[in-house]
């Protein structure tokens, strides 16, 4: 498959890049592991690609004890997964980053790209030769092939690092021609399969910030996929738990699920079930059951909804247990 023709621009400053990205038919390229596939399938045919890898200060990982972690959006997933400070203090992020299209994609892909990953569906992510004649919602039409007679797009948001970062309470910085703004990572997501994030043309994600977790905090990310390597998650769960003391009650919990909906889902009721309680196997069981009620998977990409529900329950249980163990020994 040949890539369609395009103009290739390599701005040296953020302002230049933002200005170029406001133009029609222009897309940003960083790692390119999602964009180039879509261009080969002729799902996207931008006339101009803007390479942001030459812009200074987008590729770094820095940590200050009182401020926390700061990562440039163009940092590769490999550099994040192998960073000693990420592995030691924010291990849930290292776990999530190493699993994205492992073992090779992390060398090439960036965290910004994973955050801005487009939603996916068997019927959308195909070359134009394969596609059914009537366009689906995501392709601008008014049909859904996942849910017959459905009235919305069911394309799934499947990025691995996002549930992990939302569980860490991450914030992101977005640059545009009208300046910079900060927002909680979870506010970036729309819940709409057609366009999962709210970035507008001309806006570039520049950095991710995570404040240092309080003492007795542990996090764990689990990914269930058909194969151990390469695949996107069928279900991904990121859990971060904070205890009042080494053996104390749970003072905070964040449980975030990926690949179960059109955006990452925070299981807020399951979090409440854990908060304030003394964690034991029974409470973990209850929390996992509550989390299951907060997601509504449909049969999608060859996976029956009933199976997906079982995986959500089991994986959530395992992730909570693991995060709890880590919090106890933190």
């Amino acid at each position: 498959m040949r890539l369609p023709s395009f103009e290739y621009l390599e701005p040296k400053t953020l302002a230049e890049a933002c200005s170029l990205l406001k133009q029609k038919d222009t897309k940003l390229i960083a790692g390119g592991t999602e964009l180039l596939v879509k261009m080969k399938q002729k799902l996207l045919t931008p006339k101009t690609l803007v390479n942001i890898k030459k812009i200074a200060n987008l590729n770094y990982i820095s940590y200050k004890h009182d401020e926390g972690l700061e990562i440039g959006a163009a940092s590769t997933l490999h550099s994040i997964a192998n960073s000693p400070v990420v592995r030691e203090r924010f291990s849930i992020l290292a776990q999530a980053a190493v699993g994205v299209g492992k073992p090779r994609i992390p060398y090439m892909a960036t965290i910004g790209g994973n955050i801005c990953l487009d939603s996916r569906c068997f019927y959308h992510n195909q070359s134009h030769l394969w596609k059914p004649r009537l366009a689906c919602y995501k392709d601008g039409g008014d049909v859904c092939y996942v849910v017959k007679g459905g009235n919305r797009c069911h394309a799934l948001f499947m990025a691995d690092t996002v549930p992990a970062m939302i569980a860490l309470g991450a914030k992101v910085q977005i640059s545009g021609l009208d300046g910079e703004k900060q927002s909680a990572l979870e506010e970036l997501y729309t819940g709409k399969g057609e366009k999962p994030n709210s970035l507008k043309p001309g806006q570039i994600l520049t950095k991710i910030q995570v404040t240092s977790p309080p003492p007795h905090t542990g996090g764990f990310y689990l990914k269930y996929s058909l194969r151990e390597a390469i695949d996107f998650a069928i279900v991904g769960v990121g859990v971060v738990i904070t205890l009042k003391s080494e053996d104390g009650a749970c003072s905070d919990a964040r449980i975030v699920l990926g690949s179960v909906g059109m955006s990452p889902v925070r299981a807020v009721k399951a979090e409440e079930a854990l908060r304030g309680g003394e964690i034991d196997d029974k409470l973990v069981e209850i929390a996992a059951q509550v989390a299951l009620k907060e997601v509504h998977p449909v049969t999608h990409m060859g996976i029956p909804a009933s199976y997906k529900r079982k995986i959500v329950q089991t994986l959530t249980k395992q992730a909570i247990r693991q995060a709890w163990q880590k919090a106890k020994s933190a």
Partner: peptide, 25 residues
């Protein structure tokens, strides 16, 4: 499409999927 590894080459020692790397990069 970056899923089989038949295109693997080493770029500065790192194995990459050369089908997903623009030559100009």
């Amino acid at each position: 499409t970056g899923g089989c590894g038949a295109c693997t080459v080493l770029v500065s020692g790192k194995p990459v999927y050369s089908c997903l790397v623009l030559a100009l990069d």
